[in-house]
């Protein structure tokens, strides 16, 4: 079924992203990964999130990555080593994480009482309307803080990376 496809693809793509020699290839595999994640969100009845994922993550952040990679003009990895000296330790730690997390996750069931945003409730208004309503009323404070965060990001990018005038 569809979940199997997505799960398999996401796993394979994640491995591809972290193991490519050329960073541009990694970015491109990440793009495919994001599109699949958006697809998964569609299955979870989160259409707005799927759209945002594509627009912001794939459309803005990855483009930024590509810009920087091109700007830094990396020669196609002159060195032969692409992994660090202690990559085996990283692999071991990663595997330990995987075992611990997956075994814990496999026991998860829905325990808390269900909220009121059932699939039908969201479908009746549309995902975007539901999020919009609560974003500007209940979650107003985090929203404003997030806007400040973006301002700080702009300041940072300018202060750190602009060409020196002196």
């Amino acid at each position: 079924m569809f979940f199997a496809y997505f799960a398999g693809m996401l796993t394979v793509l994640s491995v591809l992203v972290v193991t490519r020699r050329n960073p541009v290839h990694s970015v491109l595999w990440m793009l495919v990964l994001f599109v699949h994640i958006a697809g998964l969100y569609l299955f979870l009845n989160a259409e707005f999130m799927a759209a945002i994922q594509i627009i912001v993550y794939a459309g803005a952040i990855l483009v930024l990555f590509l810009f920087v990679i091109m700007l830094l003009d990396l020669k196609k990895d002159e060195s032969v080593r692409k992994f660090q000296n202690q990559w085996f330790l990283g692999l071991v730690i990663g595997l330990i994480f995987m075992v611990v997390l997956v075994s814990t996750a496999s026991k998860i069931t829905v325990i808390p009482p269900l909220g009121e945003y059932s699939v039908d409730a969201i479908k009746s208004e549309g995902s975007m309307m539901t999020i919009g309503k609560i974003l500007y009323t209940e979650y107003l404070l985090p929203f404003e803080i997030a806007s400040l965060l973006l301002l700080v990001a702009i300041i940072g990018a300018v202060v750190l990376a602009k060409r020196r005038i002196e």
Binding site: I145, L148, V152, V159
Partner: peptide, 13 residues
Amino acid sequence: YLGLELMALSTYI
């Protein structure tokens, strides 16, 4: 989380 990120991002810069 947002407060933490605000503090952290400013401090990274």
